[in-house]
Design a protein around this nucleic acid. Structure first.
Length: 233
DNA sequence: CCAGACGTTGTT
DNA sequence: GTCTGG
DNA sequence: CCAGACGTTGTT
DNA sequence: GTCTGG
């Protein structure tokens, strides 16, 4: 799963070939589900960059609290699960980021070790997402709540020692196909695979565990542990 | 037919 | 909204 | 993902 | 133990 991430250099997110920017977006190093996150989507024929609540609320939901449990969608089943298939067919999005975290379970140990994972060159990247607009049935005229979730897949060689899942990261040349609601789901499904570019991972302190902690400290390397780097996958 | 669920992760 | 279970 | 709460009644 | 909230 991927339940925590960040964008430590928000201005640099605009260098991704997405056609949108997020002016004034503050740096974040510990974004948790339920919080407002930058989202890129293709709606009514145009690319848009909007803030959305992380945690998908399907349009048919009675209670938006369901979103607290839908921060991730499994790539293997996203096309068929009732909570995700509608969004997968026509509401695919991108959550831009430059780091994410995973908690490593160490054999025989109760405590989990958090790791920070980035591109090997620290550039930002595009995480495959789904989005929805939810309106309470009791208030049909209310402003829609824009929500989103990440799609997860098997780990690549960088992630295997750390965790059994990772977020789907898209290559630049695939952004348009992923975002286009006219792309057949079968083609979009092919983009759901472990990222095959160079990444790096390093352990961080448990400061990141507490969602109310924020700032660069969350992503600072723990010097007493070794980091890993994979130049290829 | 209507009622109720609709999810992931990790742990056992 | 749509599927499964009763 | 992890942290933190986990309850009702009546009264302000 | 399990659910909700961030």
């Amino acid at each position: 799963m991927c339940g925590r991430y960040g964008f430590g250099n928000p201005a640099r997110l605009g260098t991704l070939p997405l056609g949108v920017t997020f002016p004034g977006l503050p740096a974040r190093f510990n974004v948790a589900p339920s919080q407002a996150v930058p989202l890129v989507l293709h709606d009514r024929g145009e690319r848009q960059g909007l803030m959305a609540r992380w945690g998908l609320v399907p349009f048919w939901a009675d209670d938006p609290a369901i979103g607290n449990r839908l921060a991730n969608a499994r790539g293997e089943t996203v096309a068929t699960k009732p909570s995700f298939r509608g969004a997968f067919k026509s509401r695919r999005g991108i959550m831009p980021a430059d780091l994410f975290y995973e908690w490593q379970v160490l054999a025989g140990q109760k405590v989990k070790q958090p790791w920070c994972i980035r591109m090997a060159d620290d550039r930002p990247f595009a995480m495959a997402a789904l989005w929805e607009r939810w309106v309470p049935k009791t208030q049909p005229d209310a402003d829609p709540l824009l929500t989103c979730c990440l799609i997860t897949t098997d780990p690549n060689s960088t992630m295997v020692p750390l965790h059994d899942r990772m977020p789907v990261i898209l290559h630049e040349e695939d952004y348009a196909e992923w975002l286009d609601p006219a792309t057949p789901p079968a083609l979009a499904q092919r983009l759901i695979r472990p990222f095959d570019g160079p990444m790096r991972a390093y352990p961080v302190s448990t400061v990141v565990n507490t969602p109310r902690n924020e700032g660069e400290t969350c992503a600072a390397p723990l010097t007493s542990f070794p980091s890993t780097r994979a130049d290829t996958d």
